[in-house]
């Protein structure tokens, strides 16, 4: 697990380093909408992933403690995951609407 986190940290550092190296002397006008859209999508995906992880963990714990409550927990989990996923889709739609 620690190795994976080191790999991902290294990859993210490379992603930040490449545009910095590619900058020319005469910088063009910055497209802030595209940049902020990228950050918005990243934040939305991260928060949705976190929310899905928490919902799944809570449901798994509930199922392990009380297997008889499976139908109710399963229904709530499916609906919760579908609605959490839709939040990332809202961000995607806004990005598509804003970035031409």
């Amino acid at each position: 697990m620690r190795t994976f986190s080191y790999i991902f940290m290294g990859l993210s550092a490379i992603c930040f380093a490449m545009p910095a190296l590619a900058q020319g002397p005469a910088a063009a006008e910055t497209n802030w909408v595209a940049i902020t859209s990228g950050f918005a999508m990243a934040i939305a995906s991260a928060v949705c992933g976190l929310a899905q992880a928490r919902a799944t963990a809570a449901a798994a714990e509930g199922l392990a403690r009380n297997p008889a409550a499976r139908p109710g927990i399963q229904l709530a989990l499916i609906l919760g995951l579908a609605l959490i996923e839709s939040l990332a889709l809202y961000t995607l739609v806004i990005i598509f609407a804003k970035v031409k």
Partner: peptide, 9 residues
């Protein structure tokens, strides 16, 4: 979710 619940229960 069904598969996950099968594993847990």
């Amino acid at each position: 979710v069904n598969g996950m619940a099968d594993r847990i229960t």
